[in-house]
Amino acid sequence: MTAGRPGTSGAAAAPKGGPPGGRGRRLIPAYLATGGRERPRGTAGFDRLTLLVATDQQPPELDFGPEHRRLWTLLRPGALTVVECAAHLGLPVSATVFLAADLVGGGHLLARSPVPKAEEIDRTLIERLLVGLRALP
C-alpha cells in the first residue's frame, strides 16, 4: 500500500498485462474455479503456506479444467506455497485451494505443511531465525 500504486491515479494508469481482466470491473470471477462447489475436495485444510509439489502424473484434460492444468504446469519445475501459486494464477487463495485439493486428490500434486505447529515454535526456532536474519547479506 505504498505510494505509487495505480489505485490513486485514473483508470488509464492501470498497468497493462496486469491481472486478468485488466482495467475495469472484473469479467471473470474466481468462483469459477470451484466448479460450483462450496468446499474444496477432501477435508484437510490448506494454508496459505502449504507447500505444493507436482508429481509426474499429468492431470488428464478430460477431468480437469485449464486452471488445474495451469497450476500443475506452474509447479512442474519446483515447489511453491499456495499463496504464491494463487498470485501466479491471478486467483484468490480460496479459489486456488479448490484446484490444489482436486489435484492432490487425483495424485497430481503433493501438499506439505512445513509451517511449525504451535508447540514447535520454541526458543530454538526463533533463535535459529535470529541467527539467520543476522547472517543475511
Binding site: P20, I28, A33, P66, L74, L89
Partner: peptide, 19 residues
C-alpha cells in the same frame, strides 16, 4: 501484453503477472 485469465481454455503460454 493482455494476459488471459487462467480460467480461459487457451494455450498455456501466459507467464505469471509481473509488474
Amino acid at each position: 501484453e493482455h494476459t488471459l485469465s487462467v480460467l480461459v481454455p487457451a494455450p498455456a503460454d501466459t507467464a505469471a503477472p509481473q509488474r
